[in-house]
Amino acid sequence: MFKTLADWLAFDVFGLTAESSMGESVHFFIMDITKIFFMLVTIIYIMGLFRSFVSPEKVRTYIQGKSKFAARVLAIVLGAVTPFCSCSSVPLFIGFVEAGIPLGVTFSFLIASPMINEIAVVMLWGMVGWKITALYVASGMVVAFFGGIIMEKFKPERWVEDYVWKIQMGEVQAIEQDNSLPARHRYAFGEVKEIVGRIWKWVIVGVGLGALFHGYFPENWAASLGDANNWLAVPMSVLIGVPLYSNAVGVIPLAEAMLLKGVALGTTLSFMMSIAAISLPELLILRKVIQWQALALFTAIVTVSIMLVGWFFNIIV
């Protein structure tokens, strides 16, 4: 359906040819942009209807008092399924500290949450297939698991701002929810408006870059990036990815184009993860609760783990 529309618009209406760079780019752009917006709206709406899923308050209660291993696994799984906005990371951090959840577990949650989310998963599935999606999710979980453990070894407690320890959190109150169908519809519709309103720019930039890459990026460049023996490709793509910030959703079309051009899987996965996992705005927000030494360490650990994942996949695939 999306392909037919793209064929018609790019080749019939605009009169481009499938063989030209321009034609290829435009075709890719139209096909991906329609497909992505369609998928986004559908997924967010359906998720909105079942809104009784986990809130940070519930996540905290689940994790509290579990053994460290169980707590970490739970934190990662919940981090992956909880839709959570980076502006909530400060109260979330404080709430976790207050509940006596180890900092290493909190960091595992903070790594997993932006990297893996239901929207990214469904989109990846739609664009590059379930195998790569499964690999992406698995490696994101591995990075979150070990990233949190290594973070813990450095005793990050000493860097937490003093006031955080002093905050007394009130009893979590049960909020009455209207669970009727019209209320759910209103909520789901609101979510679609809010989330799509927030991320549409990233999607357009991501699809645009993907389209350019698709039409204009010289094959031999992509091939050199894609050469698994060229072990520098992974750190290079990660170093480019870390300062770039986009919602995971915006990166997916770019990753799709990279894979189509023959860039190695490990290189592409690490590029995607480095863009989604570490973002300057989130670090600045977290600076309110923890000193920069911890944030630098956090960035370094996540960067290195992502590189390891990239090399691993380039070697085994």
Partner: peptide, 13 residues
């Protein structure tokens, strides 16, 4: 103020 927000038991803003 974060301390005040948390005193209401709210973690998601």
């Amino acid at each position: 103020d974060m301390a005040k927000i948390m005193s209401y038991g709210v973690m998601s803003t």
